[in-house]
């Protein structure tokens, strides 16, 4: 497939409580094989998906947060987190998993995948997309 489109996965829900976060991640992983230009955005309770130290042992559900670590290997390395959503929940970037990727254009240097952006910046990013999948 020759034409490359910009795909944005918009994650708006907490990781547990509903299945949206998990099934969004499943689309991202399958979609990675199609070699499109992929970004993820985390807004509202969606920012909780990236919080480090998740422990689901008391709720009988699988902790799928380690899977986010694998995204860099799938060339999914643009993870935008909305600043306002973090602030409204008393979170900072330090509360998030330190997700990284190896930049093949820069001698495989390890770089952070997460970028905290304002809601206005995120609006611009969304505006550039061809396909937005909101979960």
């Amino acid at each position: 497939m020759s034409d490359i489109k910009k795909f944005l996965y918009l994650n708006r829900k907490a990781p547990y409580g509903t299945i949206y976060a998990l099934e969004s991640l499943e689309v991202v992983l399958i979609g990675a094989a199609f070699e499109q230009d992929v970004s993820l955005a985390f807004v509202d309770d969606g920012v909780y998906q990236l919080v480090k130290g998740q422990d689901t042992s008391e709720i009988g559900m699988k902790n799928f947060s380690p899977t986010y670590n694998a995204l860099g290997d799938y060339d999914v390395n643009k993870l935008y987190v909305e600043k306002e959503s973090l602030e409204a929940r008393g979170l900072t970037e330090d509360d998030l998993m330190p997700l990284t990727y190896e930049d093949e254009d820069d001698d495989w240097a390890e770089k952070p995948s997460i970028r905290v952006v304002s809601s206005a910046e995120l609006a611009d990013i969304m505006d550039e997309q061809d396909v937005v999948l909101a979960f």
Binding site: D3, K5, I30, G31, Q36, L133
Partner: peptide, 20 residues
Amino acid sequence: SGLGQLIEAGIQADRLVTFG
């Protein structure tokens, strides 16, 4: 079928319209 069919729809269609 698989999720690839969704991604393909995103690539092939002029617009992907979500109802959710």
